[in-house]
Write a protein that binds this DNA or RNA. Structure first.
Lengths: 114, 114
DNA sequence: CTGTTATATGCCTTGACAGGTATATGCTGC
DNA sequence: GCAGCATATACCTGTCAAGGCATATAACAG
Protein backbone atom coordinates (compact mmCIF):
# COMPACT_ATOMS: atom_id res chain seq x y z
CA UNK A 1 0.00 0.00 0.00
CA UNK A 2 2.25 2.71 -1.28
CA UNK A 3 0.27 5.82 -2.13
CA UNK A 4 -1.84 8.07 0.04
CA UNK A 5 -4.67 7.58 -2.42
CA UNK A 6 -4.95 3.90 -1.69
CA UNK A 7 -5.10 4.73 1.99
CA UNK A 8 -8.04 7.08 1.69
CA UNK A 9 -9.80 4.83 -0.78
CA UNK A 10 -11.15 2.80 2.13
CA UNK A 11 -14.44 4.19 3.48
CA UNK A 12 -13.85 3.12 7.06
CA UNK A 13 -10.51 4.84 7.08
CA UNK A 14 -12.08 8.02 5.79
CA UNK A 15 -14.65 7.72 8.56
CA UNK A 16 -11.90 7.41 11.16
CA UNK A 17 -10.08 10.41 9.75
CA UNK A 18 -13.34 12.31 9.83
CA UNK A 19 -13.76 11.56 13.50
CA UNK A 20 -10.28 12.74 14.30
CA UNK A 21 -10.80 16.14 12.73
CA UNK A 22 -12.59 17.41 15.82
CA UNK A 23 -10.14 16.03 18.35
CA UNK A 24 -7.96 13.08 19.22
CA UNK A 25 -9.77 9.86 20.10
CA UNK A 26 -9.00 6.55 21.72
CA UNK A 27 -9.46 3.28 19.89
CA UNK A 28 -12.45 2.45 22.05
CA UNK A 29 -14.15 5.72 21.26
CA UNK A 30 -13.69 5.20 17.57
CA UNK A 31 -14.98 1.66 17.90
CA UNK A 32 -18.06 2.92 19.75
CA UNK A 33 -18.84 5.87 17.52
CA UNK A 34 -18.39 4.07 14.24
CA UNK A 35 -19.94 0.80 15.48
CA UNK A 36 -17.01 -1.08 14.09
CA UNK A 37 -15.33 -4.19 15.54
CA UNK A 38 -12.21 -3.39 17.52
CA UNK A 39 -9.74 -5.41 15.44
CA UNK A 40 -10.96 -3.64 12.35
CA UNK A 41 -10.36 -0.28 13.98
CA UNK A 42 -6.90 -1.27 15.13
CA UNK A 43 -5.94 -2.57 11.72
CA UNK A 44 -7.08 0.55 9.94
CA UNK A 45 -5.31 2.69 12.49
CA UNK A 46 -2.16 0.76 11.83
CA UNK A 47 -2.42 1.44 8.14
CA UNK A 48 -3.14 5.10 8.78
CA UNK A 49 -0.24 5.36 11.18
CA UNK A 50 2.24 3.73 8.84
CA UNK A 51 1.11 6.06 6.07
CA UNK A 52 1.64 9.07 8.33
CA UNK A 53 -2.01 10.13 8.53
CA UNK A 54 -2.17 9.71 12.29
CA UNK A 55 0.08 9.37 15.30
CA UNK A 56 -0.64 7.98 18.73
CA UNK A 57 0.35 8.63 22.29
CA UNK A 58 -0.09 6.35 25.25
CA UNK A 59 -2.59 7.27 27.96
CA UNK A 60 -2.64 4.49 30.56
CA UNK A 61 -4.15 1.48 28.79
CA UNK A 62 -5.50 3.64 26.02
CA UNK A 63 -3.85 5.02 22.96
CA UNK A 64 -4.93 8.37 21.70
CA UNK A 65 -4.81 8.94 17.99
CA UNK A 66 -4.62 12.29 16.29
CA UNK A 67 -4.19 13.55 12.76
CA UNK A 68 -0.94 14.46 11.11
CA UNK A 69 -0.82 16.95 8.29
CA UNK A 70 1.64 15.79 5.66
CA UNK A 71 -0.29 13.14 3.72
CA UNK A 72 -3.23 15.47 3.35
CA UNK A 73 -0.95 18.02 1.82
CA UNK A 74 0.16 15.39 -0.62
CA UNK A 75 -3.41 14.98 -1.78
CA UNK A 76 -3.72 18.73 -1.93
CA UNK A 77 -0.67 18.96 -4.15
CA UNK A 78 -1.98 16.36 -6.52
CA UNK A 79 -5.28 18.14 -6.71
CA UNK A 80 -3.82 21.57 -7.40
CA UNK A 81 -3.40 21.37 -11.20
CA UNK A 82 -6.97 20.16 -11.59
CA UNK A 83 -8.34 22.92 -9.41
CA UNK A 84 -7.27 25.53 -11.92
CA UNK A 85 -9.14 23.58 -14.54
CA UNK A 86 -12.39 22.97 -12.73
CA UNK A 87 -12.94 26.41 -11.24
CA UNK A 88 -14.66 27.53 -14.42
CA UNK A 89 -17.29 24.79 -14.17
CA UNK A 90 -18.88 25.39 -10.81
CA UNK A 91 -22.48 25.20 -11.90
CA UNK A 92 -22.05 21.74 -13.30
CA UNK A 93 -20.62 20.60 -10.01
CA UNK A 94 -23.66 21.64 -8.09
CA UNK A 95 -25.91 19.71 -10.38
CA UNK A 96 -23.59 16.74 -10.05
CA UNK A 97 -23.60 16.79 -6.27
CA UNK A 98 -27.32 17.23 -6.22
CA UNK A 99 -27.63 14.01 -8.15
CA UNK A 100 -25.17 12.11 -5.98
CA UNK A 101 -26.41 13.26 -2.56
CA UNK A 102 -29.99 14.34 -3.01
CA UNK A 103 -30.44 14.86 0.73
CA UNK A 104 -27.54 17.23 1.17
CA UNK A 105 -28.89 20.73 1.15
CA UNK A 106 -26.52 23.16 -0.45
CA UNK A 107 -26.37 25.90 2.11
CA UNK A 108 -25.76 28.64 -0.38
CA UNK A 109 -27.78 31.77 -0.38
CA UNK A 110 -30.18 30.76 -3.06
CA UNK A 111 -29.63 33.53 -5.49
CA UNK A 112 -32.30 32.29 -7.82
CA UNK A 113 -30.47 31.54 -10.98
CA UNK A 114 -32.01 29.19 -13.52
CA UNK B 1 -16.34 1.01 -7.50
CA UNK B 2 -18.48 3.59 -5.84
CA UNK B 3 -16.34 6.44 -4.53
CA UNK B 4 -14.13 8.87 -6.38
CA UNK B 5 -11.31 7.87 -4.05
CA UNK B 6 -11.21 4.33 -5.32
CA UNK B 7 -11.03 5.69 -8.83
CA UNK B 8 -7.97 7.82 -8.22
CA UNK B 9 -6.31 5.12 -6.12
CA UNK B 10 -5.05 3.53 -9.34
CA UNK B 11 -1.69 4.95 -10.50
CA UNK B 12 -2.35 4.48 -14.20
CA UNK B 13 -5.62 6.32 -13.90
CA UNK B 14 -3.92 9.20 -12.16
CA UNK B 15 -1.36 9.22 -14.97
CA UNK B 16 -4.13 9.45 -17.55
CA UNK B 17 -5.81 12.27 -15.67
CA UNK B 18 -2.45 14.01 -15.49
CA UNK B 19 -2.11 13.81 -19.24
CA UNK B 20 -5.53 15.26 -19.81
CA UNK B 21 -4.85 18.34 -17.74
CA UNK B 22 -3.03 20.00 -20.61
CA UNK B 23 -5.55 19.14 -23.30
CA UNK B 24 -7.86 16.45 -24.61
CA UNK B 25 -6.20 13.34 -26.00
CA UNK B 26 -7.15 10.36 -28.11
CA UNK B 27 -6.84 6.82 -26.82
CA UNK B 28 -3.90 6.21 -29.11
CA UNK B 29 -2.02 9.23 -27.85
CA UNK B 30 -2.50 8.16 -24.27
CA UNK B 31 -1.39 4.67 -25.17
CA UNK B 32 1.73 6.07 -26.83
CA UNK B 33 2.65 8.59 -24.19
CA UNK B 34 2.16 6.32 -21.24
CA UNK B 35 3.53 3.23 -22.97
CA UNK B 36 0.53 1.29 -21.86
CA UNK B 37 -1.31 -1.47 -23.76
CA UNK B 38 -4.40 -0.24 -25.53
CA UNK B 39 -6.95 -2.44 -23.75
CA UNK B 40 -5.60 -1.23 -20.45
CA UNK B 41 -6.06 2.37 -21.53
CA UNK B 42 -9.58 1.72 -22.76
CA UNK B 43 -10.56 -0.05 -19.57
CA UNK B 44 -9.26 2.71 -17.35
CA UNK B 45 -10.95 5.28 -19.53
CA UNK B 46 -14.18 3.42 -19.13
CA UNK B 47 -13.87 3.51 -15.38
CA UNK B 48 -12.99 7.19 -15.46
CA UNK B 49 -15.88 7.96 -17.76
CA UNK B 50 -18.42 6.10 -15.66
CA UNK B 51 -17.16 7.91 -12.59
CA UNK B 52 -17.54 11.24 -14.35
CA UNK B 53 -13.86 12.14 -14.44
CA UNK B 54 -13.75 12.31 -18.22
CA UNK B 55 -16.04 12.54 -21.21
CA UNK B 56 -15.41 11.66 -24.81
CA UNK B 57 -16.41 12.90 -28.19
CA UNK B 58 -16.09 11.11 -31.48
CA UNK B 59 -13.60 12.33 -34.04
CA UNK B 60 -13.73 9.99 -37.03
CA UNK B 61 -12.37 6.67 -35.79
CA UNK B 62 -10.82 8.29 -32.74
CA UNK B 63 -12.37 9.25 -29.48
CA UNK B 64 -11.12 12.33 -27.76
CA UNK B 65 -11.20 12.31 -24.00
CA UNK B 66 -11.19 15.36 -21.80
CA UNK B 67 -11.55 16.06 -18.11
CA UNK B 68 -14.75 16.83 -16.31
CA UNK B 69 -14.76 18.92 -13.20
CA UNK B 70 -17.22 17.47 -10.72
CA UNK B 71 -15.42 14.48 -9.21
CA UNK B 72 -12.34 16.54 -8.54
CA UNK B 73 -14.31 19.00 -6.56
CA UNK B 74 -15.76 16.14 -4.62
CA UNK B 75 -12.24 15.33 -3.52
CA UNK B 76 -11.74 18.99 -2.78
CA UNK B 77 -14.79 19.02 -0.54
CA UNK B 78 -13.61 16.02 1.39
CA UNK B 79 -10.24 17.59 1.84
CA UNK B 80 -11.56 20.94 3.04
CA UNK B 81 -11.98 20.18 6.77
CA UNK B 82 -8.51 18.73 6.93
CA UNK B 83 -7.04 21.72 5.17
CA UNK B 84 -8.29 23.94 7.97
CA UNK B 85 -6.66 21.58 10.40
CA UNK B 86 -3.25 21.37 8.80
CA UNK B 87 -2.94 25.00 7.82
CA UNK B 88 -3.14 26.10 11.43
CA UNK B 89 -0.32 23.71 12.15
CA UNK B 90 1.73 25.17 9.34
CA UNK B 91 1.05 28.68 10.53
CA UNK B 92 2.11 27.76 14.02
CA UNK B 93 5.24 26.26 12.64
CA UNK B 94 5.97 29.38 10.66
CA UNK B 95 5.52 31.64 13.65
CA UNK B 96 7.79 29.35 15.55
CA UNK B 97 10.46 29.46 12.87
CA UNK B 98 10.05 33.19 12.52
CA UNK B 99 10.92 33.61 16.17
CA UNK B 100 13.88 31.31 15.91
CA UNK B 101 15.33 32.61 12.64
CA UNK B 102 14.01 36.10 12.02
CA UNK B 103 16.14 36.48 8.90
CA UNK B 104 14.92 33.41 7.04
CA UNK B 105 12.68 34.33 4.13
CA UNK B 106 9.67 32.08 3.74
CA UNK B 107 9.54 31.01 0.13
CA UNK B 108 6.20 29.34 0.14
CA UNK B 109 3.75 28.87 -2.66
CA UNK B 110 1.25 31.55 -1.95
CA UNK B 111 -1.54 29.70 -0.26
CA UNK B 112 -4.37 31.50 -1.95
CA UNK B 113 -7.16 30.55 0.38
CA UNK B 114 -7.89 32.04 3.82
C1' DC C 1 -0.50 -12.45 41.61
C1' DT C 2 -5.04 -12.45 39.46
C1' DG C 3 -8.47 -10.82 37.01
C1' DT C 4 -10.05 -7.19 33.88
C1' DT C 5 -9.86 -3.71 30.48
C1' DA C 6 -7.68 -1.77 26.23
C1' DT C 7 -5.36 -2.56 22.13
C1' DA C 8 -2.66 -5.21 18.83
C1' DT C 9 -1.70 -9.16 15.90
C1' DG C 10 -2.13 -13.78 13.36
C1' DC C 11 -4.57 -16.77 10.45
C1' DC C 12 -7.96 -17.76 7.13
C1' DT C 13 -11.41 -16.89 3.67
C1' DT C 14 -13.52 -14.20 0.28
C1' DG C 15 -14.15 -10.86 -3.10
C1' DA C 16 -12.66 -7.36 -6.18
C1' DC C 17 -9.86 -5.50 -9.46
C1' DA C 18 -5.96 -5.02 -12.76
C1' DG C 19 -3.31 -7.14 -16.44
C1' DG C 20 -2.87 -10.11 -20.57
C1' DT C 21 -4.55 -12.00 -24.72
C1' DA C 22 -7.90 -12.63 -28.03
C1' DT C 23 -11.71 -10.94 -30.28
C1' DA C 24 -15.54 -7.85 -31.35
C1' DT C 25 -17.38 -3.40 -32.84
C1' DG C 26 -17.14 0.73 -35.42
C1' DC C 27 -15.55 4.14 -38.73
C1' DT C 28 -13.11 5.29 -43.06
C1' DG C 29 -11.72 5.17 -47.82
C1' DC C 30 -11.66 2.67 -51.89
C1' DG D 1 -18.96 -4.70 -50.66
C1' DC D 2 -13.75 -5.23 -48.48
C1' DA D 3 -9.42 -3.89 -46.08
C1' DG D 4 -7.38 -1.43 -42.43
C1' DC D 5 -7.12 1.30 -38.52
C1' DA D 6 -8.94 2.84 -33.81
C1' DT D 7 -11.24 1.57 -29.88
C1' DA D 8 -14.03 -1.40 -26.98
C1' DT D 9 -15.15 -5.68 -24.67
C1' DA D 10 -14.91 -10.77 -22.97
C1' DC D 11 -12.64 -14.11 -20.60
C1' DC D 12 -9.22 -15.87 -17.62
C1' DT D 13 -5.92 -15.57 -13.94
C1' DG D 14 -3.07 -13.87 -10.12
C1' DT D 15 -2.81 -10.80 -6.47
C1' DC D 16 -3.93 -8.29 -2.63
C1' DA D 17 -6.48 -6.28 0.85
C1' DA D 18 -10.53 -6.25 4.13
C1' DG D 19 -13.33 -8.74 7.43
C1' DG D 20 -14.16 -12.28 11.03
C1' DC D 21 -12.51 -14.66 14.78
C1' DA D 22 -9.28 -16.14 18.03
C1' DT D 23 -5.56 -14.96 20.67
C1' DA D 24 -1.56 -12.28 22.28
C1' DT D 25 0.41 -8.27 24.66
C1' DA D 26 0.13 -4.58 27.88
C1' DA D 27 -1.37 -1.70 31.70
C1' DC D 28 -4.31 -1.13 35.46
C1' DA D 29 -7.13 -2.32 40.00
C1' DG D 30 -7.51 -4.93 43.88
Amino acid sequence: MDSVFEIIAEPNRRAILGLLVSSEQSVGEIERRLRMPQPTVSKHLRVLREAGFVESTVDAQRRLYRLKAEPFQEVEEWLAPFRRFWSTHVDALERHLARMHPSTSTKRKTRSRR
